[in-house]
Design a protein around this nucleic acid. Structure first.
Lengths: 116, 116
DNA sequence: TCTACACATATAGATTATCTATGCAACTTT
DNA sequence: AAAGTTGCATAGATAATCTATATGTGTAGA
């Protein structure tokens, strides 16, 4: 089983959500995830980039180069209308599973402050 | 990308959570998931059983046959102490990702009644 | 100026996870 | 007796993911 770091259900949702808050690039996305999760989620570049490329061929995101003089160039991504729809779908699925888990945890008597 | 029905992050958590509420068997787990999710999550037997077997080799669950006379036999599963620990870990990871998504969705201005 | 480190992107190859399709068999309902 | 539901299972194909590795630029400090 071995828990994966970039877990299927959430990768797309997280990336699309980040891009909904503004264009970004690979390295920055990794940092945002680490910072926003309080250092609990650490994505590897070697795992993220292939995912980004796949999302691009799906038409969910688009890229453009940003290369100001004297600065390192960065490949920025923006979310497309198709990506917005995909995110909406992912969001619904996530919440469906979340509600399922919450109901199971409540029944099992797990503490609400964690399951909140 | 194509969203998977038995998605990595949640399969183990859902199964272990169900077994925390009492022993169960494959077919019943599928039904519980369908009913509890309001028909939104439909797991296939062909996908579930291999997962159950894998969880068993991980030592997270144990099986035993239940075959009363005149009834179909069922392979029941119970969660092990190792499984309880695994669930606790999965639960934390799920909530970490959930909080991350909620924070991103709040920032993006998605309606709270969905993101709740 | 040399070195080390953070920044930034990328791919190949191996491994693992998952889906689809199919098979079997017993019980139950019509 | 036929059809449907219950119940478990695996093979083969496909897809997703990880590990390791590669490349190059800019910056800070010795």
């Amino acid at each position: 089983m071995s828990t994966k770091s970039l877990t299927g259900a959430s990768i797309a949702a997280v990336i699309l959500s980040i891009l909904s808050n503004g264009d970004s690039y690979g390295y920055d996305i990794i940092n945002q995830v680490r910072e926003r999760s309080g250092d609990e989620i650490e994505w590897k570049a070697g795992s993220l980039y292939p995912v980004m490329h796949r999302m691009q061929t799906n038409g969910w995101i688009e890229d453009y180069w940003h290369e100001p003089k004297g600065e390192r160039r960065r490949r920025y991504y923006r979310i497309t209308p198709k990506g917005v729809k995909a995110l909406e779908k992912e969001r619904k699925q996530w919440m469906t599973t979340h509600r399922l888990l919450l109901s199971l945890w409540t029944e099992a008597g797990f503490s609400p402050e964690v399951a909140q």
